[in-house]
Each structure stands twice: as C-alpha cells, then as structure tokens.
Design a protein around this nucleic acid. Structure first.
Lengths: 330, 330
DNA sequence: TTGTAAGCGTTATCAG
DNA sequence: CTGATAACGCTTACAA
C-alpha cells in the first residue's frame, strides 16, 4: 500500500481489494511513532477572552486558505487548545505541545512576537510560518501583506478625492502590522505634501469599539478631519457609527477607508471602501511555504509579502459634498 | 508521572525534577498507540468553495466555545482537512479519517444529515455531537438552538409593533434549522391570527446574496410586506440592502428581523434586531456532552436545545412611521 | 518478489 | 515500592 515498486501487480491488487473490503485504515499513531512524521500541522492562535483571534474575521479566512492547501497536501490541522497535554504535569509551552503531537509544522497567528513561548518555537527546529507577524528563525518565516503600501493606497485615494485633513486610527503600534500601516500613513502624508498632525493619529486595537471611541474624540477636535483611514475594517465600522451618531454623514461629511476587506465591509451601509488583503492567499502561501520546509529539509523559511488592493465602495467620496445630504447617499 | 499511588515521594520528585530539566514531553503517538485514546477531538466542517462553513461567523463562534471547553478538559482539536490521509490509497470517509487519527470524539458542523459519510460516522461507535443539526445514533447526539421558538419571538415582536404583513426568507427547508424556523413562523402566524400567504415565504440559503435577491422580489409584490423575518443575519443584511436600494427605509418602510446575532448585527447601520443564538454556549454544550460520552462509556448522547433571545435594535420599528423619513432614523 | 524481525515511545502487567 | 518486559500497529531493513 505504500506504493513500493517491487511488488507484483497481482499482490498489490489482492491487498488493495482486501483493504477496501475490511475498510482498513492505517493508524496514524503507529505510523507517526516510526516515521517521526504526523502529517499534521499545528495551528497556534490565541483565544483570549476579550478578543479571541479565532473570532476575528480576518483569521477565519486565512484559516480557510490554510485548510484547503494543507488538506490538498495531505495534512490535517491541529488546533492547539489545551495547555496541559499529556498527563498534565503542569502547563506546557507551545513548543512542548507541538512536540507532544509531533506536528510536522506550525502556523502562528495573532500571537505576540515577543512572547517567550513564541520565541522558543521560532528558535526550535520545527518549521514555522507566522501570518501577519514578522517572526524569523532558522526554520521560521512569515507571510504578510504589504501593509505600508496599503496605507499609502488609502491615503492617495483620499487625497485624490480632495481631502487634506486625513486622520488615522492605527492598530497597536507594538505589532508589526499596526506599525507598518502607521508608517505607510506617515510616508504617504509626506509624499503628498500633507502636514503631519499629532492629534490626527490615534492608536486603537483593531476592534470596533476602539474605532468608535477614537472617532468620537476626533470629532471633538477644533479642526476635525474630513477623512479617516482606519487600520482595520472593524475600527472603520466603529468610526462610521460614531460619525453617524453625531448626525454627520459618510462620506458626505467625513470619508472613511478601512483595511482588510472582511465580509462586513461589503455588507455595511454605506459599503466600506477598504484595502483588501488576500486572506485566502495568505493562508495558501503560508501552507505552501510550510509544506516546502517540511518536505525539503534545506528549504529556506519564507519572507513573503503579498500585495494589497484598494477596493472603492461607498464610504469614501469627495470632500464636503453637502448636496448629497438631501438624497440618499447611494 | 502518571500519578501512580505506589511510588515513593522521593522517586516521584526525582523523576519530576529531571523531566522538567530535560523539558521532557511525552509523545502522544506512542501513548495513543497503547491507550487507544488520543486526547484529540475531530472537527468536521465542510469547506465548500462557495460558502465554506468555517467562514460563517456562526460556526466561528461555536468553535471558540468548543475550543475553550475542550482545551480545559485536556483535549486538542483536529480540523479534518485532508480527504486522503495515510499513504493515500484513495479518498477516505469521515469515519476512516477519524479512526485514522483515533480521535476520541467528533463534532460535526454544517454538514448534510443525509450524507452517507455522515451517517456512517453517526452509526459508528465513536462519540459524536452535531451542532445545529439533529443527528442521532447510538453514540451520536446534538445540540441545537430553539429555532422554532426563535421564529415565534421574532414574529410576536413584529406583530406587537403593528405589523400584519410579515414575510419570511427562510433557510434551506431540507435542513433542520431552516425547517424549524419556517415552522416557527407558520405557527406564530396562526397563533397571532395572521393569514398565511404563500408569496410571503421565500427559501434562501442563509447567505447575504440570497437575502438580497429574495427581498428584491418581495418588493415587486402587488402588496409587499411591511416586515420581514430573515432566518439568518446575513440574509437580513442582504434584505436591508435591497430595501435601501429601492429607496425605502428600514425600519420606517419595512422592518427587518434576523437570526443568529453575529457580530455584524450590532455593527450594521441600522443595527439589526435579531434572535440571538448562544453560540459560545452551543460550543461549550457540545464539548461538555462529548466529554461526558468519552469519559463515561454509558453516557447517553445529548439532545440539547438551548434557548434563544430576542435582541431589539434599530431595524425593527413601528409600521409605516413615515415621519421618521425626514430625520435620520436613529 | 515475498516473508520476517526489530524497533519507534509509551503504558500495563508482573515479578522482585 | 521498584525494575523488567510485553504489547500497541506500523515501517524499514534484511533474509529467504
């Protein structure tokens, strides 16, 4: 059954037929024990109480991409859930949990780069790929979107529409993704000859509530922005909510551009202009790179940057088109 | 380390200390081989190209609930991805894949009850729990929301608001969930003394586009409804979109009530009135029941129905409150 | 081309 | 209480 080339056609068929009849399925555990390979890829993603990342629409889609590609390659996905595997002699590190299951590779999402636990994994000999997180190590690489360019695209779009007072609600600046989008914002400002204003930069946490709260404060400014670039769609949605609560209109009074292009973006009212990340592609690329590292020992860890794309919908529009207020905005 | 009671305190400590030092982690495969237990629970959820269920916000939240409870119980989650496990002598059934990994139990989501593959699993001796799907078998049970009552709640709410022309966009009627919500709709109609009209019932597929398309057709009726109960939030969002595209307002012209209470519901504009399913609870209940069956051989398979709750937001309102049109609806 | 034996890392059993 | 030994179900290497 293992496709040896030194068995007669007759025998092969006899065996295969019998296996079929008996619904024989090899036992992964036994095979793993001897081959030292499990055909399983571990998935680490934090499930904090406040914002379980597995619940963020972004990671979900990445997971779909991962599952498809990995499945096609003959691998199943192990969602590391328990912190006390084995017969529980205390809490185990990610690395130990991965070794416990002898996973052939690991995908990391939504974890802190600096966490000791994560570092340990990255320094190990297990092939690892981080998504949206610039982890590196001997056998650890990452796939990430071109966040800096994404922010640039957003700002250029807004600028072209006539905006010159553009604020941003960033992600946590201690994350690579949050920082890159902020850097992209600043670089674009400079490129476009727009002044940088401290009061136009607010640090959020990627989630709805923070977008909502920061937008409210932005609105109290003596000279409020006419456009906002939010570093995530969820925050953008929060911002839109704040704007409409203040009896202002999007995009009539304030234009909003998000980041991610999660499903919500197209379904919102007004539909959200955003920077699309290729989430399925990110998952597929991570899977691809991981399989390469698993299957070819010398394969270098990836450092892949995927392009992003501006998707223009309804939440961005010309500056101060008050006329739009008399009619529905669409 | 396995907590035997016939080892001296001294030896135990010596061993434990050494294990710690060497960062010893037991190998799951070896243990599985001999104990016939893997401390892993399989998760089956379809990832069709059109609508990967893993991507439906509903299942994501259920997954969080599952992961937390299962993790606490010392189990990891295996996302069955590959159809050709082992050394690939053809495609394997779910059952084979589960046996291959010797998973201790299985959670099924978003699969077809009638699928031969699913039936095989349900008839096997592996403990199974289906979520939102009434699978039964010797060691197979399910957890599900009280969908019939949910639909009733929605209709009563709408009726109380003064609506008597209430349409519904149902889910696929060959699914238990879709059917239950339709039954709840019909029963409520009767209870409230409202006439049943064939043209007010349209079968969708739970997703945005179908809600949108069906609402458009509902709008062309000689006597269009003044309220719509959609069997999912995604379809409700699609319906809202269709209504606003037709220059009508929600809830001013047509009230909309959804089902699920996914994150989108609260973030939409107008925020969606909906029937909340306890998604984390569903996941936790499934995990709980599964653990019981796994750990106590005689434990009966579950048949749990979780209560739902009406969440009133902005998309439902009094009938024909045209006045609202002059001012923002919020 | 086919059959046989050793060993993967555990747990369980059974003498010491 | 402790140490030795036989499975568990596979793959691999080697002998027939």
């Amino acid at each position: 059954m293992n496709d040896y080339d030194d068995v007669s056609e007759a025998t092969r068929e006899r065996v295969l037929k019998l296996a079929e009849e008996l619904e024989y399925t090899p036992t992964a555990a036994a095979r793993t024990l001897v081959t030292k390979r499990s055909q399983v890829v571990g998935v680490v993603l934090s499930t904090g109480v406040d914002h379980p990342d597995i619940q963020h629409p972004f990671f979900q889609e990445v997971l779909v991409g991962l599952k498809r590609r990995l499945g096609a390659g003959g691998y199943d996905l192990l969602l590391l859930a328990t912190e006390t595997p084995g017969n529980g002699f205390g809490t185990h590190s990610y690395l130990q949990r991965c070794r416990h299951h002898r996973v052939d590779g690991v995908v990391l999402m939504g974890v802190e780069r600096r966490e000791a636990d994560v570092q340990k994994l990255a320094r190990s000999t297990i092939p690892c790929v981080a998504v949206d997180l610039d982890l590196v190590g001997r056998r650890t690489g990452f796939v990430i979107s071109d966040n800096t360019r994404g922010a640039g695209l957003a700002l250029e779009h807004l600028h072209k529409l006539g905006h010159d007072r553009i604020a941003t609600i960033t992600g946590p600046t201690d994350t690579r993704v949050g920082m890159d989008r902020l850097v992209g914002y600043r670089q674009a400002l400079e490129r476009l000859g727009l002044p940088y204003r401290d009061e136009y930069v607010r640090e959020g946490d990627f989630y709805f509530e923070s977008g909502n709260a920061h937008m409210q404060e932005l609105l109290t400014l003596p000279e409020p922005p006419t456009a906002v670039f939010a570093a995530s769609d969820l925050m953008a949605a929060g911002a839109v909510r704040a704007i409409e609560r203040a009896q202002l209109e999007v995009p009539g009074d304030i234009a909003v551009v998000g980041f991610d292009d999660i499903q919500l973006a197209a379904m919102m009212q007004p539909a959200l202009t955003t920077i699309r990340q290729d989430k399925l592609g990110l998952g597929a690329a991570a899977a691809e790179a991981l399989l390469r590292m698993i299957e070819r020992d010398g394969a270098p860890p990836p450092g892949v940057t995927l392009p992003v794309e501006l998707v223009v919908r309804e939440s961005s529009g010309g500056k101060r088109s008050r006329a739009a207020r008399t009619k529905p905005t669409r």
